[in-house]
Design a protein around this nucleic acid. Sequence first.
DNA 1: GTCTATAAGGAGATAGAC
DNA 2: GTCTATCTCCTTATAGAC
Lengths: 195, 195
Amino acid sequence: MARTQGSHSETTGPRIRAAAETLFARHGYAAVSMRQIAGAVGLQAGALYNYTPDKQSLLVDLMQRHMEALMGAWAQEVQGDTALAALEAFARFHIRFNLARRDAVFIAYNELRNLEPEGFAQIEALRNAYEGELAGILTAGREAGLFQLEEPRVTTRAVIALLNGVLTWYRDDGRLSLEEVESLHWQMVRRLVGV
Amino acid sequence: MARTQGSHSETTGPRIRAAAETLFARHGYAAVSMRQIAGAVGLQAGALYNYTPDKQSLLVDLMQRHMEALMGAWAQEVQGDTALAALEAFARFHIRFNLARRDAVFIAYNELRNLEPEGFAQIEALRNAYEGELAGILTAGREAGLFQLEEPRVTTRAVIALLNGVLTWYRDDGRLSLEEVESLHWQMVRRLVGV
DNA sequence: GTCTATAAGGAGATAGAC
DNA sequence: GTCTATCTCCTTATAGAC
């Protein structure tokens, strides 16, 4: 407790990122001003520049942290020993993880166009790595004779798109529970890949 | 040929909309200025206000025209007499129509958050009507014993999401032709709904 | 680390000449 | 119908006091 009450440097960074994430997701990166972000955290705009060199870096930082959290969490997931078990694990993980971080996901998918080339390349590489995880499962399942896929790359993207659809309509207080939504989508994915 | 060369009122309206559509899709509504739009058409910013009362109306106008073109085109589509034929028609139509108008589709899905309440309600109603077309096909197919669906509403959204996925990666000069992409997705939808 | 003040520029929209 | 000029406001980012 040596720190004085006025010094918040260890918490304001995360609070700034949290506020920016919410605001960017709701209104879009371009539509949100540094003043709005500062206001949400109880700061003046100038103070933000103690935490980020500029607005663009704030966006890149959010996306990078999200993609790395996604990859890290998937790496720790129990994946089973068959392609079928791995696919179920992926489908359920993707829905669960992304629904818990909708703002970050929304930003990662919709603000890529507002990234300058270097940031864009970084984020795209991380996304390709994640899609590659699913692609690996699908091709393994095809080689094992479990799945029926005409075009693994197309199927990979189709499965991701299908799962991401949930993010646009699911509500925590809605008719269906998370577990039900997971299971419904797993059944659809299962049929889609021709099990 | 009675018109003078300097008078372009019949064509500048469409040209403004076309330029706005391209720019909004590429950079986002909030990031595009009226000056940019005017510049793309060869006008000064002030002249735009002969064609739209404000920037927001330009966005609503684009979305409305797109959704109405979508509904109108689907109404004219030959839909077959079984739910299976109707579903194939819908899947192929959705991919073909939307791929031909990617900018408009992109705007319709990503700029809803930049709409004021009245505009938002209008566009959402049109979208719900379109989704209702697919929902009708799916429930008809289920009642006929053709499809296996746990939750028609969830399946409807899943199919739309799956088909929309194409819009994010398809390239006219890519490896797969439009017809191939249509067929691949139709096969996936077919399996997804448990035919 | 945060503040106030400010620089430098771009935004949406309007007025009035032509 | 388009232009130039302008109003008013907001933007990102920085400088320097505390």
